[in-house]
């Protein structure tokens, strides 16, 4: 098994999992993490598979399960969700489900965070840039350490 670097459009999983550690009162024990994807979107499916491979290599505390965007009712019980690209039409539903279940959403799709529907966006090209949406974080009761927030872009 090999670990390959994600493409620029895909979520950088090592950075995303590190972001979780900067949550105030981060989840203890295994962290139930959803991968929200669109079954009919090839790019979304490919990104979900890429995330699974990366997490699988980690064997850490992250426990992932795929949740199709049409089955957001099963998001309950998860603490973090990795939101794949290709879900712009469903971002409202994702935000509502995340708010109901207090799930921190992390994505590589900047538009999801810019529109306050996702909490954290991660861009890695040409270098790591993390964006945190205050309103979205507040909606899911997520609080980050101040040192982390001073290094990211808060909108």
């Amino acid at each position: 098994m090999s670990v390959t670097a994600p493409s620029a459009a895909e979520l950088n999983v090592p950075v995303a999992t590190r972001v979780i550690s900067f949550l105030q009162l981060p989840p203890s024990g295994p962290i139930q993490t959803a991968i929200i994807y669109a079954p009919g979107n090839a790019d979304s499916v490919a990104e979900a598979a890429s995330i699974e491979r990366a997490i699988g290599a980690g064997k850490g505390r992250i426990r992932v399960k795929r949740i199709a965007v049409g089955a957001l009712g099963t998001l309950a019980g998860t603490q973090v969700a990795f939101v794949t690209g290709g879900l712009r039409g469903e971002q409202d539903e994702i935000a509502q489900a995340a708010t109901r279940n207090h799930v921190v959403t992390i994505t590589s799709d900047q538009s999801c965070v810019a529109s306050a529907r996702c909490v954290v966006a991660i861009a890695t090209s040409p270098r790591v840039q993390i964006t945190v949406n205050r309103a979205a974080a507040r909606a899911v009761d997520a609080k980050f350490g101040s040192a982390f927030l001073m290094l990211v872009k808060e909108i």
Binding site: V13, P14, T17, R18, I20, S21, F22, L23, Q24, L25, P26, I31, A54, I55, A57, G58, G60, R61, I62, F144, G145, A147, F148
Partner: peptide, 10 residues
């Protein structure tokens, strides 16, 4: 890189 520390970074 993906190992989460017991002591939260925050």
């Amino acid at each position: 890189a993906m190992a989460l520390p017991v002591v939260p970074a925050a």
